[in-house]
Design a protein around this nucleic acid. Sequence first.
DNA 1: ACCTCCTAGTAGACAGTGTCAACACGACAA
DNA 2: TTGTCGTGTTGACACTGTCTACTAGGAGGT
Lengths: 199, 199
Amino acid sequence: MPRPERDLREACLKEALAIIEHEGVERLSLRDVARRLGVSHQAPYRHFPSRDHILAEVVARAFEEFARHLDAHPKSSDPDRDMGLMGEAYLAYAAKHPLQYQLMFATPLPSTDTHPEMMAKARHAFDMLLSALRRKAAEQGRSLAEEAIVLDALFIWSGLHGLAMLRSSSAFDTLGLRGAAIENSTAHLLSRFGDALGH
Amino acid sequence: MPRPERDLREACLKEALAIIEHEGVERLSLRDVARRLGVSHQAPYRHFPSRDHILAEVVARAFEEFARHLDAHPKSSDPDRDMGLMGEAYLAYAAKHPLQYQLMFATPLPSTDTHPEMMAKARHAFDMLLSALRRKAAEQGRSLAEEAIVLDALFIWSGLHGLAMLRSSSAFDTLGLRGAAIENSTAHLLSRFGDALGH
DNA sequence: ACCTCCTAGTAGACAGTGTCAACACGACAA
DNA sequence: TTGTCGTGTTGACACTGTCTACTAGGAGGT
């Protein structure tokens, strides 16, 4: 029985993510993870109480990486342009890692209560959007009422999230949409955001 | 062994939907369906080749019911108002049947290829949106180019779908959003659609 | 040195699942 | 009557998550 990694816990998480990334989350099995790592089927249970706990941690890390990607998006001092760049970064990530995106937002985890730190990482990205909207509202001399800012943030997030989900599902194919429409959908969405919020 | 229904096939679909509706799709098991119907665990296999085939048919019917609901939305001769009503109907249905909505749009079915008739039913709803946008564009004297219409349809659908998904997930709770923001999100989204498309 | 405790891993079992194969029995056509 | 087909049954298999019991090895105290 070779010990393939110094830290089995870390190895489990890595292997689980690898499986999810090109088989999908529903194909993930702890026994398979153990098998690939050359350990007994119970070894992972020394480090995680249950399958859900592994999943929750993988999801948490996916959120961290997503947030890191959004943080690293090309910045602009113009709030308008900055929001556009952030939106592009958001959709680009979702398009590049569809299974990971679905893992974050479409995985039915009963563990949301027991793992509040998980989706709490998503809060960071939402705050970035809020502050961008505040800058924009200030520049336009519009109301800075928190309620209005939050509602606009939900409006934008809904659009981004919806497009990302529709893209990563097969909805567009079965609707028989042309490739051109799909490719232009990002630019169009962002430009419509501009129309809606002024400028 | 009592025969609870004349048609076992229909009974399976009904029971499967019932299970999904208040346990979630991942809890669905064919053996459980059989058990509840008082038949052997293999009986359903006489009517469906596999679990995925049952799921696909349940999803197809969910789409049918969803489309029926959208068809029955309160109409208005004003295209603007009509689109608003349709949006409200869309989000109301998603809010009322969150598990069914997730079943339709967030269930990973490898069977999309083998069951093209399934999501094809969704096409109908998309066509309703397209024609509403065409009426609106005609009224405003804007371009009727198919490409532009489709892009706007995607823009709107993305927003509706995104909000519906975010609502039916626990995202809003974990983000610590106030109830008021959530309740107003529908109205705000629809009014922003109006801003974006003019009027 | 010895004993104890803890950690990380193993092996075996159990109930649950989807699915395959073999069989049973009634209806109906030849 | 005989045979076939549709619809159901039973039994098995491999797979899953998870419970329990066991074991090897090291740290630390006495």
